[in-house]
């Protein structure tokens, strides 16, 4: 039914949040190869394969973000090349909210401290764990998660973006939707939206740690990596 009066004012942000909730991709499974006898190789191969499939999903998801397809193809590429790891890491942190000392890369691929350390992923897991703690303390919910993920997409600082104004417009639209969402749901906490946005520096820092980790794996070699994953890693270097 159509909202009226004061309810109508609440419409626009709710439309965006509902849209983002529907656009949220199905969860992926990591499916570690039980026949791989080398635990480290199994962990790293599983992680890189999962990240490659996440990438495909993230690219498909970005097309559903309001206004993203109105950017030029070149700018869509520049934006995705600069923020895909932030989007990926935010998803992992959100999945890990319920687990204090574990990182949930996928439901069937959960790494504790020891498993991570053995595979050389100790620093990455610690960084994602720190980010997850921040969101746990904030009790980040699903609506806020999808809003924040969309904002992270449009928060690109890529120097290759040609029409920065168009990207700024998308960012403003989503920022406004977050402000409206929080002012409706938590009028008693006017700092809520700001608190969420203040997690973006840690998100970028964590994505930087992920980049260093993946680049290290690539440099050392021995772990199969798909072409798209390599292409996107290269784009960030």
């Amino acid at each position: 039914s159509m909202p009226s009066g004061k309810e109508a004012d609440k419409g626009s942000s709710n439309v965006i949040v509902s849209h983002l909730l529907v656009a949220e991709p199905e969860k992926l499974f990591a499916m570690p190869d039980p026949l791989q006898p080398d635990a480290t190789l199994r962990t790293l191969t599983t992680l890189c394969d999962l990240a490659d499939r996440e990438l495909v999903v993230i690219i498909g998801w970005a097309k559903h973000i309001p206004g993203f397809l109105s950017l030029s193809l070149a700018d869509q590429m520049s934006v995705l090349q600069s923020v895909w790891l932030e989007v990926l890491v935010l998803g992992v942190a959100f999945r890990s909210l319920g687990c204090e000392d574990e990182v949930v890369f996928a439901e069937d691929f959960v790494l504790d401290e020891e498993l991570s350390r053995v595979a050389g992923l100790g620093e990455l897991s610690a960084a994602v764990g720190q980010l997850a703690r921040r969101y746990r303390a904030l009790q980040l919910d699903r609506e806020e998660f999808v809003m924040l993920k969309a904002i992270a997409l449009t928060n690109s600082d890529s120097v290759y973006i040609e029409d920065t104004e168009a990207v700024q417009k998308l960012r403003d639209l989503l920022h406004q939707a977050l402000l409206e969402l929080e002012s409706q749901r938590r009028p008693e906490d006017p700092r809520r939206a700001g608190r969420l946005l203040l997690t973006l520096p840690l998100l970028r820092q964590t994505a930087g740690r992920a980049l260093a980790t993946f680049y290290g794996i690539k440099t050392r070699g021995g772990v199969p990596m798909h072409k798209l994953f390599l292409e996107m890693l290269e784009a960030m270097m």
Partner: peptide
């Protein structure tokens, strides 16, 4: 751009998203 062939292709393919 040659270097980013796969991303380019994925973005170009079905440029219009599936109806939600």
């Amino acid at each position: 751009k040659e270097k980013h062939k796969i991303l380019h292709r994925l973005l170009q393919n079905s440029t219009s998203p599936v109806d939600l």
